[in-house]
Every structure is written in structure tokens, then in C-alpha cells.
Amino acid sequence: MPTITVVPGDGIGPEVTREAVAVLDALGLGLTVDVLDHVHADRFLATGTALTDDDVSRIRASAATLLGAVGDPRVTSPDYARGVLLRLRAELDLYVNLRPVRLLHERLSPLRDGRRRDLDCVIVRENTEGLYSGIGGTLRAGTRDEVAVDADVSTWLGVSRVIDYAFGAARRGVCMVDKSNAVPAGGRLWQRCWRDALARYPQVPARHLYVDVAAMNLVAQPETFDVIVTNNSYGDILSDLAATLAGGLGAAASGNLNPATGFGLYEPVHGSAPDIAGQGIANPVGAVLSAALLVEHLGHPDAAEAVRGAVRSTVETGRCTPDLGGSLTTAGAGAAIRAALG
């Protein structure tokens, strides 16, 4: 019986993960849930510890992890978020950040032209390198002569393997996004790895775009994208843009994956939303769809598609939270999804 760890986290995290876990229970897959409900900002503020070695061991020993949200306005140090998310990504080598984006209903799209609303793509973001690697520093901090440097790190291994994953995920084609005309060193490496991949996958339609052009085309021609592969920072930005085009961050799911080991950490991308925490209006769809990704990668594609179908059904009929055009509470929306599962 597989065990999954659940880290509810901060803000609306406990509210939305509660509904996601209830959906997992309703699927009847025999999953055991190990809840790490002590991992949150309160503990970090009291002890300075984000994750203990024991926490990491419990997560590592599980089949997968579902995370709610990390972040609290009382915490001003980046060490908390880095100590949870970035530590897990680094220690478990979760080198693929997977962001599927699909418009749930046309009323949710901010695009006026109905012909441009057919958005159904996946953004594959390199997840362990780039500008988020934490390499850099500051000279003469706090003075008018302050100098701040953050290093954008790319390696042949990191770039090659994430591009390979993108080609493996393609249904219609792959678009590689970089800024090699302005960032020459990393750009040359990405371009070299891209050319090598084109030779390995000649049967897969492929194209390259600079990141500014890709952002424009996501708005103007979102239906032309299938799989986008890019670095850590560009992927972070483009995936939030795509999620907004598909109805907002409240419905956006993600996975942090190591395809070699099969382990994944799954999380909605909306953050902890402290301004609405405890009000019962948080949208659970992002967490529920993250749970669908989790069960899919555990080998239950039919169950995952059943969850996605239930979500689409509830959104289409307005049985959802106010941000998606409904009037239900968080718990009400979760119950509607479970009812739609039959």
C-alpha cells in the first residue's frame, strides 16, 4: 500500500490540501497518507528550522508528496521557502517542473478573441539550476556602492535531461525558449543541447523562440503551443502567464519530478494567499489537479483523468468557488468534485 506524504504548509495550504486528500480517498486507490502538519511558518519563526532531516527522510521514503503552500508575511527571510522547496528540489534532484495548462471553460479566459482560447499545453521548466541556484553575493551591502550578483547556472547534464523529458512529453511538438541572443554563455549551452536533441528526435516537430517572443505568442497564439521547455526563471514567468490565460493561478497544478527515480512533489502554484486564509473561499482546484498529477505518475492514469473530468464538470456548471464564477466555499467545491466522480 503506497504511502504519500502531505505537507499542508501555510495560509490556504491546509484548506486546499484537505479537499485534495479527500478526493484521493474517494478514488479508493489504497493510498496511506502521512501528514507533516508541523512544517509551517510558526515552527520556523520559533526554531529557525524549515525542514528537519527527519522530515526529509519521511518524504524521501514515501511514494510521492503533496504540498499545500509555503509562505507567511511574518517571515522576511528567504531561508524558510528555500529551506522547504529548494531543499527538496535539490536533495531529491527534482529537475523537472511540470506545469500542464488547459482552459477549463471559455468564460475563464481573459482573451477577447474566442479563436485564441484553445489553450492546452505543458511547460517543462528546468528546476534545479538557473538563477535560482543560490550562487551569488553582495558587496558593500547597504551603501550607495552596493553590488549584487546572482549567477545563472546551466550545466550540460541539467539542460540535456530536461530537454529530453520535454521531447518525451510531446504530443504535437516542442518549443525551446531561451534568450541566447542576449545571454550568450548559457545560451550557447542551451542551443548546443537543443541541436543535439533535434538529431535524436527527428520525428518530433520542434521550434525555438526567444522568451520575449514566446510571451507575446502565448497571448496572441496560445493554441500553437504543445510543450514548452525552458530554464528555471523563464519557466517560472511563462507558466504563470499561461495559467492566467487558462483561468487563473487558483486552478493551476504543478509537479516537481525526478523521472529517473519516479519521485514527485506536487503542489498548486497559487501560494499561501494569506489575505484569504481561513475565510473558506480558497479555490481547491489547483490542489486537486496536483493530486491528479500525483496519482497519474503513480501509475493510475484513468483515476487522474476521472479527477480532471470531475473538475471540468463542476467548473462548467458553476459548482466552484467565486474566483471561477461560482459561489461555493472551499469545502463545497471539494464536495462537488467528489460528487462528480460518481
Rank of each mutant, 00 (worst) to 15 (best):
V213G: 08
P259H: 02
A242M: 05
A277K: 00
T244Q: 15
G278F: 02
A243Y: 06
D275S: 09
A199L: 13
P274D: 12
A253I: 04
L249W: 13
I228C: 05
R200Q: 13
A246T: 06
A214E: 04
D212T: 06
H208E: 03
S254Q: 07
A199G: 09
T224M: 10
V229Y: 07
E223H: 14
V211F: 08
N217A: 11
R207N: 01
P202I: 04
A260N: 07
D212N: 03
F225W: 00
G278V: 05
A220I: 06
A242E: 03
D236I: 09
V227G: 03
A214Q: 06
G278M: 01
A197N: 11
I281F: 02
Y234W: 07
R200V: 08
N256H: 11
F263L: 02
P205T: 03
V229E: 09
S239A: 13
G280N: 07
D196R: 14
A214F: 01
D240H: 09
G248V: 13
L241T: 12
L257A: 10
N256R: 02
H208Y: 15
V229P: 11
A197P: 10
P222F: 05
N217Y: 12
S239E: 07
M216I: 09
M216W: 10
S254M: 06
D212Y: 01
S233W: 09
V204P: 03
G250I: 08
G248I: 12
A206H: 14
G248L: 08
N256S: 12
L249S: 14
I228S: 05
V219H: 02
R195L: 14
V285G: 04
Q279G: 03
E267H: 02
F263T: 00
V269P: 04
P222G: 09
A282I: 08
A260D: 15
N217V: 04
S233T: 15
G248E: 12
N231A: 12
L218Q: 06
S233A: 14
L257M: 12
Q221I: 00
D240L: 12
G255R: 03
P284A: 06
H270R: 15
V213H: 11
P259V: 02
A220P: 00
P205H: 03
D240F: 11
L198G: 13
G280M: 09
A260G: 02
A277Q: 04
Q279L: 15
Y210T: 09
H208V: 05
I228Y: 04
V229T: 14
A282W: 06
V211H: 04
V219R: 04
D226P: 11
G271H: 00
F263C: 02
L241Q: 15
Q203I: 02
E223Y: 08
A251W: 03
G247D: 07
N258C: 07
A214H: 02
G271S: 01
A197M: 10
G280I: 07
D196T: 14
Y266C: 06
G248P: 12
V211T: 14
V229W: 07
N232H: 11
R195V: 11
A206R: 01
N217W: 13
V285P: 07
L245W: 05
S239D: 08
Y201H: 15
